[in-house]
């Protein structure tokens, strides 16, 4: 058996395909739009995003949905590249959590 990382799924056993089709959740649509626009502006490259997503632990990779992985990778890249700051993200997240009616 060749060694493989947890994102390398080809040929593994798995259950039936869930063929249900549904529209994106609003936050998924926002994440999708953000990623494509940031890629088109050269904020980061597709392979950088893939690398970040692959750096999730096996459990997180499996349990996180597709757009959760994208959002994670985007946040990490923007932090690493200094586009956003840790403190700035904390402040913006707090403001949005409050605005959206949630709590920290």
């Amino acid at each position: 058996m060749e060694p493989r990382r947890h994102h390398d799924l080809g040929g593994l056993n798995a259950g039936p395909v869930d063929r249900n089709v549904h529209a994106l959740e609003p936050w998924e649509a926002r994440t999708d739009a953000l990623v494509y626009l940031l890629l088109s502006r050269g904020a980061f490259k597709t392979d950088e995003l893939r690398r970040e997503i692959e750096s999730l632990g096996p459990d997180e990779y499996r349990d996180a949905g597709y757009y959760h992985r994208w959002l994670h990778g985007t946040v990490r890249l923007l932090l690493e590249k200094g586009v956003i700051s840790v403190a700035g993200l904390a402040t913006a997240l707090e403001a949005r959590t409050e605005l959206n009616g949630g709590s920290l």
Binding site: M1, E2, P3, D8, G10, G11, K45, D47, E48
Partner: peptide, 25 residues
Amino acid sequence: PAYVRGKLGTIVATCGWFPNPEELA
């Protein structure tokens, strides 16, 4: 991917020249 490593295949097309994703990453 793991499932092709070590396997024997045949070139059927040249897709072009591309920057190396291992570096782009």
